[in-house]
């Protein structure tokens, strides 16, 4: 298996400028969310990156990418038809190889020495199949994520055979179809936003484009569910945390998390305590 290319989708409604947000990284350096995502992506050993953006956003993204901008290919998504369509725009870019895919509105912080992407890519190499990152998530967040149903892989902690993927299920459906043994009750395996996908996913997306009425949106979760039905597909419980910077206070929380894990932890903590103490 050769994972040389990565696709980042950043053209969703309301997401077009999220990766451009300014943030201070763990070393105290001013950077952008995009640059952090690219750094995360490169930890997986990929050579080429492509970003699916809204038309006209290429220049802003190139600037936000900083020193990594030369490695980027931009694919504008005109007449967008959803997440699946965005990914499908990269079918020629990924060619016949497995590829890494990240969403552009999340930041990832690993709890281990290996970055989140690296953890996933290593499993993909070892198991020679598609792998999606997942995180056990409380059911209150079900309206925000795709959810994986599956079974634990024997003697492999944190690894699951994917049987189905459902986009934003209700808790009723989640309880009936997506309960995974070993998880706390009321917790489900929600997609983490990082995947290693096979080129066949592009065929499935192509089929979906054909089957769907013009203008109708194509989500990715049903495609992943189909993928699970035709080839081995694993989910890895990533040892890390994802931060959705698209939700209210999302960037603030992500910034705090990055700062508290970085070199200025004590300073930030002191400021936070002072802030708490002085607020009435």
């Amino acid at each position: 298996m050769n994972i040389r290319r990565a696709v980042i989708t950043a053209a969703g409604p309301g997401q077009a400028t999220l990766p451009l947000q300014q943030i201070v990284d763990g070393t105290g350096r001013q950077t952008t969310a995009l640059e952090m995502i690219i750094t995360e992506t490169l930890s997986g050993g990929v050579d080429d990156l492509c970003i699916v953006v809204s038309p006209g956003q290429e220049a802003a993204f190139r600037q936000a990418a900083g020193s990594q901008s030369d490695r980027l290919t931009f694919l504008p998504q005109s007449d967008p038809r959803g997440y699946g369509d965005a990914l499908f725009r990269a079918r020629e870019f990924v060619g016949d190889d497995h590829f890494l895919h990240l969403v552009g509105d999340h930041l990832y912080l690993s709890r281990s020495e290996d970055r989140c992407v690296k953890q996933l890519v290593e499993i993909a190499h070892a198991e020679k199949c598609a792998v999606s990152g997942v995180q056990p998530t409380r059911e209150r967040y079900l309206p925000y994520f795709g959810v994986v149903g599956g079974t634990p892989v024997r003697n492999r902690p944190n690894l699951y055979e994917v049987q189905s993927v459902v986009e934003k299920p209700t808790p009723t459906q989640a309880e009936q179809e997506l309960t995974v043994s070993g998880l706390r009750s009321g917790h489900y395996l929600c997609l983490f936003g990082i995947h290693v996908l096979p080129p066949t996913v592009m065929d499935l997306l192509g089929d979906a484009m054909q089957e769907t009425q013009p203008g109708e949106s194509i989500p990715l979760s049903p495609i992943l569910s189909r993928l699970a039905g035709q080839e081995r597909y694993l989910a890895l419980e990533v040892d890390g945390v994802r931060y959705d910077i698209g939700v209210q206070y999302g960037l603030l929380i992500a910034q705090l998390a990055v700062a508290l894990k970085g070199s200025d932890r004590d300073r930030v903590l002191t400021d936070l305590v002072e802030l708490l103490a002085t607020q009435t």
Binding site: E139, R140, P143, P171, Q173, E175
Partner: peptide, 17 residues
């Protein structure tokens, strides 16, 4: 299955529907 979650929910902010 499908009924349990309603007994777990503890605060309106957690409403998943």
């Amino acid at each position: 299955a499908g009924n349990r979650w309603m007994f777990r929910l503890g605060h309106p902010a957690e409403h998943p529907l």
